[in-house]
């Protein structure tokens, strides 16, 4: 279990890079890296040499999230102005522009079959599900408000369930979302039903990832500097791993399910061994907060990408 640094691109964007994801390879094109930045652009990269494939413009106020359809043909990007732009990867034609006011848009993810796009809805305390055929809002999975909270406008408690992050289980049956107050909510998607909370974090949960092999194992990263491993169905906490010296901004599970990668405000990327419950490697090539880490999901190789406020992109070989 090891990360080997491959290459970095210093100024990949004009400003902080906040999001990244892998676009699966299609018959026409190889797998690409998709990044989004404060500079209001979305860029596509060839991982071979980190050469720029294309720059998409059109967003306002910083791109906070990008998502790629499992087919590799469609991708989505979202910015702080709460618009989601769905576009054709090859042609950059806009397929749809999604918004669900007054809900903001934070993290997004396509479900494993590619029929639904889940969008973390911020202050609406819900996850919006968009149908990818018609680009219609098909469901809103709301986190039930705690009992007896007839919230007043000035009550600060309202924002606690602010939804930041979202993740699909590998079988597409479950969906988890992380909130500002540190709680994680698990939903049954088919029945559009809230199942339960997973407690343990006490600060915003900015990133969630299911193990690709085990639909029960959910990994979360939080501002409380911990990475948690939950049994999402059994409602138990496997382990709480500390080691980052600041917020954990992003987590991802390796395709073989044996390792966890994390990016943190402490400027590092760490590789964790869930069995040992300890970090086995720390990469220090970034010079500012690392907002995104992502394993390339493909079977053939195993690349890890990381993006940072330092405007750079880095690639590593995971083995």
């Amino acid at each position: 279990m090891k990360l080997a640094w491959l290459r970095s691109l210093e100024t990949s964007h004009q400003d902080c890079v906040w999001a990244c994801t892998w676009v699966p390879a299609t018959d026409k094109s190889p797998g690409l890296l998709l990044t989004g930045s404060l500079d209001e652009t979305v860029k596509l990269w060839n991982p071979e040499d980190l050469s720029l494939v294309r720059t998409n413009t059109g967003h306002c106020l910083g791109v906070v999230s990008v998502a790629a359809h499992p087919s590799g043909k469609i991708a989505a990007s979202a910015s702080m102005d709460s618009f989601v732009r769905v576009f054709d990867v090859e042609s950059n034609n806009t397929i749809a522009t999604l918004e669900a006011p007054p809900s903001e848009v934070w993290q997004m993810q396509f479900d494993p079959r590619g029929t639904t796009l889940a969008v973390a809805g911020g202050s609406s305390a819900s996850v919006k599900l968009w149908d990818t055929a018609e680009w219609k809002l098909v469901a809103t999975l709301s986190i039930p408000r705690p009992e007896g909270s007839n919230s007043k406008p000035s009550d600060k408690g309202n924002n606690k369930k602010f939804v930041l992050s979202v993740a699909w289980s590998p079988n597409g049956r479950q969906l988890a979302c992380g909130s500002m107050d540190g709680s994680i909510s698990v939903f049954d998607v088919q029945r559009a039903k809230f199942l339960h909370h997973l407690d343990g974090h006490t600060m915003p949960v900015r990133s969630l990832a299911y193990s690709p092999l085990d639909p029960r194992v959910l990994v979360s990263g939080s501002d409380d500097e911990r990475i948690h491993m939950y049994d999402a169905e059994g409602k138990t906490l496997f382990s709480s791993m500390s080691g980052h010296s600041s917020w954990v901004l992003s987590v991802d599970v390796s395709p073989d399910g044996a390792a966890i990668a994390s990016g943190s405000s402490d400027r590092t990327v760490k590789l964790w061994d869930p069995k040992m419950r300890a970090a086995v490697q720390t990469m220090t090539n970034h010079t500012d907060q690392v907002w995104g880490v992502k394993f390339e999901g493909g079977v053939r190789g195993c690349l890890l990408a990381s993006v940072s406020d330092d405007k750079s992109i880095s690639l590593y070989n995971y083995s």
Binding site: C60, S82, P101, P102, S123, P153, S154
Partner: peptide, 21 residues
Amino acid sequence: LKNAVRLFSQLSAASNLQIHG
């Protein structure tokens, strides 16, 4: 300006939901 309008209108919409003060 368009962005500003959007931001403000979002806030305005959100205020209906009593999300902020």
